[in-house]
């Protein structure tokens, strides 16, 4: 090929520019510690990395939700433990009152302390945590329990305005999304196994409805009835009431154990998300992160190449036959 000075200088400038470009690009990448700066530089990996980033953010959200649930359950646990203590005390008191040695005055005193237990229980199940009534099931914005002021049901416990003795089962659900693939059924309601139900009603703890013999299953009401009998010093059928109260106490303990299980589930899930998060972060750094050692070596090579290119420049563009004429 016939070479002219113009070809040489044009090609030289082109290579020099290319070399400088590569150097500057590497410099930017190292400064940002990234494999690429634009989506367009590496679309496939960038796309993957973008999805990974979305998943990491989602897991952050799920972890946040689970922590919230864990907080609620731990609050729940401490309330139950309180109620459990109250029930144990109540059982002792009732059995003392039933004892033949107790007289009417002593029974009246016991009745008063049972009334006090009732108040303590009511306060416990109307507890607020972070502005939420945690025993209010799906409607955490409203205080769940109140006492009836009606003539015929005076002093009976109401759950959201309904007599607890008339409530046979609890169907309230309050779901949070913890990454189980939240889905809706044809009525736009959450499908239960795709989200976590964190609804807690005081009814499960205190009991609701009446049993097959027509006795209340509710702790508050039962204490009320027993207190009333003690006040009137009426010991007829007390054995049955005591037995029923014991059953209610058993239920409270069952709930105590149950909440422990729920907390455990949450912790298990948190751990799972944690390891998922870790895996995703490893993947992210593999997709986006720059291997600094390798990058700096490359940078060194590019720098050397650029310098060499510059050095050649002063030589390549100079001589022609013209320079050697006498």
């Amino acid at each position: 090929m016939r070479l002219t000075n113009n070809i040489i200088s044009k090609n030289y400038l082109k290579s020099l520019n290319k070399s400088l470009n590569e150097l500057s690009q590497m410099n930017t990448l190292i400064a940002a510690k990234r494999k690429y700066m634009n989506f367009a530089d590496d679309p496939i990996n960038a796309m993957r990395a973008m999805k990974v980033r979305q998943n990491i953010n989602k897991i952050d959200v799920y972890v946040e939700n689970l922590r919230e649930a864990a907080d609620i359950f731990s609050q729940y646990e401490s309330v139950i433990s309180n109620v459990n203590n109250i029930v144990s005390d109540a059982l002792v008191q009732v059995s003392q009152g039933m004892n033949g040695t107790s007289d009417a005055t002593a029974r009246y005193t016991i009745a008063q302390s049972l009334r006090a237990f009732q108040d303590a229980i009511l306060a416990a199940v109307n507890t607020q945590f972070a502005g939420k009534y945690i025993f209010s099931g799906e409607t955490v914005g409203v205080p769940p329990f109140s006492i009836s002021e009606e003539e015929d049901t005076k002093g009976m416990l109401l759950y959201k305005g309904m007599l607890v003795d008339n409530i046979s089962e609890v169907t309230e659900k309050r779901y949070i999304d913890i990454g189980l693939g939240l889905s809706l059924d044809e009525y736009s309601n959450v499908i239960p196994n795709t989200a976590r139900d964190i609804a807690v009603t005081g009814l499960e703890l205190l009991g609701c409805g009446v049993d097959e013999d027509g006795y209340t299953k509710n702790l508050y009401n039962m204490l009320g009835i027993i207190a009333k009998k003690f006040e009137e010093n009426d010991m007829s059928g007390m054995d049955v009431y005591y037995e029923k109260l014991q059953k209610i106490a058993d239920n409270v303990r069952v709930q105590y154990v149950g909440v422990g299980e729920k907390t455990e589930y949450i912790n298990f899930f948190l751990e799972r998300l944690d390891s998922e998060q870790f895996n995703l972060k490893v993947k992210q750094s593999r997709l986006e992160g720059l291997d600094l050692a390798e990058a700096i070596t490359t940078f060194g090579e590019l720098e050397l190449a650029y310098n060499a290119c510059l050095q050649i420049g002063t030589k390549i563009l100079q001589p022609s036959l013209l320079d050697f004429l006498d």
Binding site: Y133, E138, V140, G141, D177, L182, V190
Partner: peptide
């Protein structure tokens, strides 16, 4: 009331 059913629908 503190119900969150519609928020879940929006998340969904």
């Amino acid at each position: 009331s503190g119900k969150n059913d519609n928020v879940l629908r929006m998340i969904h």
